[in-house]
Simulated scan of single mutants.
Amino acid sequence: MLIAAAVCPCPPLLVPEVAAGAAPELDGLRSACAEAVRALAAARPERLIVVGPAEPARRGPHAQGAAGSFRGFGVEVDVRLGAPAAEVVSGGDGAAEGRPAPSLPSSLAVGAWLLEHAGWDPAVPVEGLGVGEPLEGERCIEVGRELAGRAERVALLVMGDGSACRTLKAPGYLDERAAAFDAGVARALAAADTGALAALDEELAYELKAAGRAPLQVLAGAGAGARLKGELRYDEAPYGVGYFVASWSS
């Protein structure tokens, strides 16, 4: 049964080394994410599942200890899902010696980074699930229900962004529908309204480049009937992309 959830955005810019000189611009967002992860830990789950959008090659389940990397963004930062930070020795070709090849999609790598820097207890099992934008809403709901049934006390860390069309300089340019779409997501997260998340318009989300639609609908399925309370910790659109941080708790 789902006993707690956190929702966080998944831009690699959350990792300060990736953001470089722009890192201070997202300090408030990082702080809100850290608080949400600590709230997850306080719920004392038996199992944590990190859910986020993924490209086709990296969809599906990822076991605890799965490797992720931000080397594609020009920084030597590696993570492992649900495992404490380990010293990494780099070979001459830039590959990490003694570590598995990165398999995590970037969204789950950001989630792993958040867990690592919040001091997640490695004794609590963590697994990941990469889901694709094409996954239909009904199937997302079914997946969420399956995840919630994996233990008596399940927690989810849901990684996903809102629309990417809030300003002229946004990745998807300005779309006048984006603000209303994001406002609806924010209301649903604040109220832990699984029905509203389940009803998100898939076509509109696609047009607005809302990468978090499928993960949010997985959360809707997992939380259905759980009677959790919601708290919206962050709702802004830096860089023209809707970012939300929320906590659901019993």
Rank of each mutant, 00 (worst) to 15 (best):
A95R: 15
G92W: 10
Q64I: 08
D93L: 11
V75A: 01
G98A: 00
G94D: 06
A86Q: 15
S69A: 10
G68H: 02
G72A: 10
A66E: 14
S90L: 15
G98V: 00
G74V: 09
E87L: 14
G92E: 14
A86L: 13
P61Q: 09
A67H: 13
V75P: 01
G94L: 09
V88N: 01
V77L: 10
S90Y: 15
G72V: 10
A83F: 03
V89G: 01
G68D: 05
G68P: 08
G74F: 01
G72P: 09
A85V: 08
A67R: 15
Q64A: 13
F70T: 12
V75D: 03
P61V: 13
V79N: 04
V88A: 11
G91N: 03
E76Q: 13
D78I: 12
R59T: 13
G82A: 10
F70Q: 05
G82W: 08
F70L: 11
G91T: 07
P84R: 02
E76A: 15
G82L: 11
L81T: 10
A96R: 13
V89C: 03
A67N: 06
G60E: 06
R80Y: 04
A63F: 03
G94S: 09
R59Q: 14
D93E: 10
G68I: 05
D78C: 09
G68E: 02
V89K: 04
G98Y: 00
A85Y: 00
R59K: 02
A66W: 06
G92H: 08
D78L: 14
E97W: 01
G74Q: 06
P61L: 12
V89R: 12
A63P: 09
V77F: 00
S69E: 07
A85P: 05
V89I: 12
A83E: 15
E87M: 11
L81V: 09
V88R: 11
V88D: 05
E76M: 13
G74I: 09
A83G: 03
F73W: 12
Q64K: 03
S90E: 14
R71E: 15
G60Y: 04
A95P: 00
H62W: 06
A86W: 04
G68W: 02
G92M: 13
V77A: 05
E76S: 15
R80M: 13
V79W: 04
G60M: 04
V88I: 14
G60C: 03
G74M: 03
V79S: 05
A67I: 11
G60V: 01
E87K: 07
G94R: 09
F73R: 11
H62Q: 08
Q64F: 01
F70W: 04
D93A: 11
P84E: 12
V77D: 02
H62G: 07
G68S: 03
E76W: 05
V75Q: 01
A86E: 15
G94V: 12
A66K: 08
G92R: 12
P61C: 07
R80N: 08
G68V: 07
A85C: 02
P61G: 07
G68M: 06
D93P: 02
V79I: 13
R59D: 05
S90K: 10
G91Y: 00
Q64S: 11
A95N: 10
F73V: 09
A95Q: 13
V79A: 05
R71F: 06
